[in-house]
């Protein structure tokens, strides 16, 4: 924006630190430390979710094998109607309520676009819309979480227990872990909102909001993966 002084534009290092001036005011790569750190953190999160998704896939496959083979230890953990449906379909698909989860996915997608609008608003130093979009993103995130509470309760009512069988453990863990990430994201958004209402979230701190945004979009991206891998592919 207009706030970038010409000198800064000239001074910034464009190769590996050859015109690095003083301690920390400019960085070797010309990139922000915090943003770099955020990307590194998100990189490590990829491995974490990768491990959990593979755990889910493996556990689900093993669970199905046992259900189809009629292992009494496994069958004892589920109500008869679910077992029949699983055996008839040869998959755990009957458990899911695809229309509802699709709605949840749309909601999270909407919250991603409202998040970028919040970032755009703060870049223009538009306080009103920054607050508006932050609040909207947080609200949509909360609706997503409410949907997850609804979904978990439904699974539970259908007879799927966390400590019952492999499917329950893996499904609740994977989606619950994602839900925790969303909740942490909402807490971050609301904290920003409080700062914004106290007038402490100005253009200088656009990057803070951008970092929260990166986290938020990452959580959305993880849901994109989970939605396809867990829900749509039987």
């Amino acid at each position: 924006m207009t706030a970038i002084p010409v000198e800064d534009a000239v001074e910034v290092a464009d190769d590996h630190g050859s015109d690095h001036h003083d301690d920390g005011h400019h960085t070797s790569l010309g990139l922000s430390n915090m943003k770099l750190a955020m990307w590194l953190f998100l990189g490590s999160e990829c491995l974490l979710f990768g491990a959990l998704i593979s755990t889910y896939l493996l556990s689900k496959a093993r669970f199905l094998t046992e259900v189809l083979a009629g292992n009494p230890e496994v069958l004892g953990t589920l109500p008869a109607n679910l077992i029949e449906e699983f055996q008839a379909e040869g998959s755990v698909e009957p458990l899911f309520d695809i229309p509802f989860t699709s709605a949840s996915s749309f909601i999270l997608l909407m919250s991603s676009v409202t998040m970028v609008f919040a970032h755009q608003a703060i870049s223009k130093n538009d306080q009103r819309n920054t607050r508006l979009w932050l609040a909207t993103t947080a609200a949509l995130g909360s609706v997503f979480i409410a949907g997850q509470v609804y979904e978990f309760t439904t699974f539970y009512n259908e007879g799927l227990r966390f400590d019952g069988n492999l499917l329950g453990s893996a499904l609740y863990t994977l989606t619950g872990f994602h839900g925790v990430h969303v909740t942490v994201g909402i807490i971050m958004l609301l904290s920003l909102l409080v700062l914004a209402f106290r007038g402490k979230l100005n253009q200088d701190r656009a990057e803070t909001l951008e970092l929260v945004g990166l986290y938020w979009h990452f959580v959305d991206v993880v849901w994109v993966l989970i939605f396809t891998i867990v829900y749509l592919i039987p």
């Binding site: 924006m1 970038i4 800064d8 534009a9 000239v10 910034v12 290092a13 870049s123 656009a206 990057e207």
Partner: peptide, 21 residues
């Protein structure tokens, strides 16, 4: 200029965001 932070020119416009959405 390479200031990523504060360099908002490089970011997409609202219209692009809508299209992507």
């Amino acid at each position: 200029h390479g200031h990523s932070d504060h360099d908002d020119h490089a970011h997409p416009t609202e219209k692009q965001y809508w299209i992507v959405f």
